[in-house]
């Protein structure tokens, strides 16, 4: 059975965490392809490129918050401002090791954020996202 999701973005600067997460998704057959980015700047540039080339946009973006160059927060600001067609169909999942309640409150201020995951990613997290997407497509 082919994965339901065609393409996702994975934005995190911790290579070990990226490795682990990719391995998990592969086992869970979560997506057909994963694009990795070390920080937000790379990710937003790739998105704009994608849009301009009329390539397929990612269905889900997994976003870490603390990264060098452009943090997750800055990425969210840029994403909201960026002129990307159909960007509202992209689901952004914020990932963080932090259990800081202030941070969680701040995330709620970003309507583009679909969900918040405390690291590490579990099969249940992935399944939840999948179910949500399937329901949406059937509706």
């Amino acid at each position: 059975m082919n994965p339901f999701i065609k393409k996702i973005y994975f934005v995190d600067d911790d290579p070990i965490f990226v490795f682990i997460s990719k391995k998990l998704m592969k086992e869970e057959k979560f997506t057909e392809s994963i694009a990795e980015f070390e920080h937000g700047k790379q990710a937003i540039e790739a998105l704009i490129e994608c849009d301009q080339q009329n390539e397929l946009l990612p269905t889900v973006i997994f976003l870490d918050l603390s990264m060098p160059v452009m943090s997750g927060w800055e990425f969210l600001d840029s994403f909201q401002a960026a002129p990307i067609e159909n960007k509202e169909q992209i689901k952004i999942i914020v990932m963080s090791s932090s259990i800081n309640p202030l941070e969680i409150d701040m995330i709620k201020n970003y309507p583009v954020v679909h969900d918040y995951i405390v690291k590490p990613i579990t099969p249940a997290d992935l399944n939840k996202i999948k179910v949500c997407l399937v329901n949406e497509s059937q509706a």
Binding site: F17, S97, P120
Partner: peptide, 21 residues
């Protein structure tokens, strides 16, 4: 405390996942 939790957590997460794999 947040720094500690954040940094130690990310490491411990990685370690436990890698060990499982």
């Amino acid at each position: 405390a947040h720094i500690v939790s954040h940094n130690l957590r990310s490491h411990s997460t990685n370690l436990s996942m890698l060990t499982n794999f």
